[in-house]
Write a protein that binds this DNA or RNA. Structure first.
Lengths: 198, 198
DNA sequence: GACAAAAGCGGACTCCGGTCCGCTATAGTG
DNA sequence: CACTATAGCGGACCGGAGTCCGCTTTTGTC
């Protein structure tokens, strides 16, 4: 439970409260579910004032996101510097396949948080830096794989679409697809997009 | 301004109030923008009580959706019974291209409402009947075009992904794409998905 | 037209996310 | 250690979405 970057030097009480808040939130999520507690509940459970809560985590979505920022950053790290096929070294098409599978596995483990975070606050998904990061990554791999073609920019977004939390949860929970089935679909989509048109 | 189905027989005052509410909402949207008025404002502008507002339109999202239900239903109608290539008669691949272009044009005209409606209320997009309808339609066309292949279900969702209001607004407003560019992207995506794998 | 059932109405109320601002603890400085 | 500037704290407060329930209007019946 650290999960937030002590950007510069962090005051002692601030650090203490940050950790209290994150622990309290985790406890509440586990106890009553991610949508069944208010921000006041969090503040009370953490033993801090509401203002403190909001000073550190600007809103509910950010608070939930903070709970998974550690594994999320680890995943991003492994895209840039990890072992192939996720990291550099493998052929681009293979890395692209692995990227989607990685995201889907991540979602499978943290869907609750991701979905809640994506659904709060307008247009959260596209305006969040993580989308920009994924977009750059996928764009690079696509161009490495098949060169620059018309509509590449559009196709990048089309590829990223089903890697969002909301579509994933829909496929898994509403359509009853297994993680493997979703991954298989992803691979089919990647193959379709990378296959040259006649 | 009728836009709501008088499912059975509708009481006179109810009808009067429904129309008042819809008109008032439209006026407010035009005057201050879609996100800058409260439900109380609507009730006041319409000269009805808040309870009346909520009795008829269960929540804010439904109210906004009701404002475009007429053209939306017309579009759906033209998919089923309209002239080709949107309606029956054209080859399935062609109909699929036309379908996406139709949706994108519709979005371009009604993005405000669609986006607001999709972003309010959790998971609105996938649980809304309109998604099921589109899904069935696209599924039919894809199977008519290329038969039943593995992962077809996944690919249907992948095709529908970029036809949502949020991705469209992102592409148009954040990425600065023109409607034509977005449509071109859609066609490329359809071609990619329909092209047989080597 | 009188009556009763029920469909519809309206606004007070609750709950919650997010803001504001006066107060307090902290950490450098001499 | 005393002093001070300031980061951090906390809870009263606000505005808005959605609920509740007693009251009013409508409509069908005789």
């Amino acid at each position: 439970m650290s999960a937030a970057p002590p950007a510069e030097r962090e005051r002692a009480d601030a650090r203490r409260n940050r950790e209290r808040i994150l622990c309290a939130t985790e406890r509440l999520v586990e106890r009553v579910g991610i949508n069944c507690f208010s921000m006041d509940d969090v503040a009370a459970e953490a033993g801090v004032g509401k203002g403190t809560l909001y000073r550190r985590f600007g809103d509910r979505a950010s608070l939930l996101r903070a709970l998974i920022s550690e594994p999320e950053q680890a995943f991003q790290e492994s895209l840039i510097r990890g072992a192939p096929p996720l990291g550099p070294g493998a052929p681009p098409a293979e890395r692209l396949h692995a990227f989607g599978e990685g995201v889907l596995h991540f979602l499978d483990g943290h869907a609750k948080y991701m979905q809640a975070a994506e659904m709060l606050g307008k247009g959260a998904r596209y305006s969040h830096p993580v989308y920009a990061f994924y977009r750059t990554h996928v764009g690079l791999l696509v161009r490495q794989a098949v060169g620059d073609r018309p509509n590449t920019e559009y196709l990048i977004d089309a590829l990223l679409g089903p890697l969002g939390a909301e579509p994933f949860v829909y496929q898994r929970d509403a359509r009853g697809m297994s993680l493997d089935e979703v991954c298989a679909g992803w691979h089919a989509l990647v193959d379709a997009v990378l296959t040259p048109q006649p």
